[in-house]
Design a protein around this nucleic acid. Structure first.
Lengths: 122, 122
DNA sequence: CTGTATCCAAACCGATACTG
DNA sequence: CAGTATCGGTTTGGATACAG
């Protein structure tokens, strides 16, 4: 009667949710962007930088390395007069795309809302 | 001939992708977890802490406040002998759930892979 | 052009201690 | 129980300069 009985299961939440596992791959704030802009054809460093916008070279470099280390991104050397490299998603990386796409979808809806609704009554 | 012609469009990437907008809501490493465990019925502070696992009280408090500020989470007072509060997702917050669900789905697949495949040939 | 190195600010997290 | 304050450590990110 006095006891506050409250079911502990929302719908059977996993002990350590896989969320964390996946989020480790998408670490920083820029990581999803890198993967996102790599979802199409292979891109070079400078192109990627231009695509993403205002990411600093250092951060892009760091994220790229991190993503290589976790097996999400592959770096391929392109033989030519100006030796350059191309980055592309690995098979693992491609599996992340749908998740990011879902985030993008929400982001678009959010932006639309922001325009429709003035300011959310602060 | 010598010119390296390279199309700049992957599939028409938006100027400033909505990804960033959405990621701002999902800031820290714990934020998605908080939203995730709030996807069902309203939860109290301690319950949430137990659900998530090893999150410190300070961080949970900070995330909760941040999510309230961004309109993702609502805090409701529950009248009773022990005055307590319940947190639940707002309408906006519910829109984030599918995105997080997608991440969780990938995370599950990842875990399964990790078991199936030994070590990815390091 | 492709990256990396250095310096520096800000955000995030954990542990502990403390108030209502 | 619910939540905040403080201290310290680690990570992330930006700007700039610089090496291949």
């Amino acid at each position: 009667m006095a006891l506050r009985v409250r079911k502990s299961k929302v719908s059977e939440p996993p002990p350590v949710c896989p969320l964390t596992a996946c989020m480790k791959l998408l670490g920083g704030a820029w990581t999803p962007n890198v993967v996102w802009y790599l979802r199409g054809e292979p891109r070079r460093f400078g192109e990627l930088r231009g695509d993403i916008g205002r990411i600093s070279a250092k951060v892009l470099s760091a994220r790229l390395r991190q993503l290589q280390a976790s097996g999400v991104v592959v770096r391929n050397a392109v033989a030519g007069s100006p030796p350059s490299f191309e980055y592309e998603l690995s098979e693992l990386g491609r599996e992340l795309v749908p998740a990011i796409a879902a985030i993008v979808a929400v982001g678009e809806k959010l932006k639309r809302r922001a325009v429709t609704r003035p300011a959310k009554a602060r």
